[in-house]
């Protein structure tokens, strides 16, 4: 997984509460055999005029111009600013897969749904919880200024505004370690690969037929 240490990126505002996983990626896209390629269908129902199907050519579908991610000023955003209880609904990993595939590395919200929150870390997305009032302030800033960027510094655990103002955030030490080092569950297990190899050598001695 990619390391996230410090990044400066455009911010897109998702100004509604309780955005659920079905809204993030509608269920007709769950039959896919991939975990990439969900980006064009992120927020599909809000983003397009028609109903998308897994085999639709998304580049030709009519867009809902007013939807925030369709506005020219938010193209290329990597930070999503959201409202409370973001990611509620199902436990499937398709929602973070879609956000990541679209290009979001960070989601900032006053609160997240539990399972979604955990699934974000598994897929290299940083979900950051900030006070409601601070999130409110950020929404005002984003709306007020075209090209509004934030810097997220995981090392010092601070968000830095364009005016230099710093907003500290909390993050679980273990999760932070994983993101800083680009470690997922597999990466963590592979950090013990010497143990696995040592076990394997012993196992081969004891049960050679399993290595024939």
């Amino acid at each position: 997984m990619d390391k996230i240490v410090k990044m400066t990126a455009l911010v897109a505002p998702m100004d509604r509460a309780n955005v659920d996983t079905d809204a993030i990626i509608p269920k007709q896209f769950l039959k896919s055999i991939k975990r990439t390629g969900f980006g064009p269908n992120l927020f599909d129902e809000w983003r397009y005029e028609d109903v998308g199907q897994p085999d639709s050519d998304n580049s030709h579908r009519p867009l809902r111009k007013e939807f925030v991610l369709n506005q020219p000023r938010y193209q290329g955003a990597k930070i999503l600013l959201a409202r409370e209880n973001f990611g509620c609904g199902s436990s499937r990993e398709h929602a973070p897969w879609a956000l990541k595939d679209y290009g979001f590395d960070v989601v900032i919200a006053p609160s997240f749904a539990d399972i979604f929150f955990n699934n974000c870390f598994k897929n290299g997305i940083m979900p950051l919880v900030l006070d409601e009032s601070i999130v409110d302030g950020l929404f005002q800033d984003v709306f007020a200024q075209v090209g509004y960027e934030l810097t997220v510094d995981l090392e010092s655990q601070k968000i830095i505004k364009p005016n230099g103002e710093k907003i500290p955030f909390e993050i679980d030490a273990f999760r932070r370690h994983c993101l800083l080092n680009g470690l997922d569950d597999i990466g963590l297990t592979l950090a013990h690969q010497d143990d696995i190899k040592a076990y394997e050598a012993k196992h081969k001695q004891e049960a050679p037929w399993l290595f024939a």
């Binding site: 055999i33 394997e200 399993l210």
Partner: peptide, 24 residues
């Protein structure tokens, strides 16, 4: 961590696992 001697694969639950290997 438990060592696995055999993994059986079928078409429904394996595609995203292989995709994950490719991505990383």
């Amino acid at each position: 961590l438990i060592y696995i001697d055999r993994q059986l694969l079928h078409e429904v639950t394996s595609p995203q696992a292989f995709e994950g290997l490719r991505m990383t």
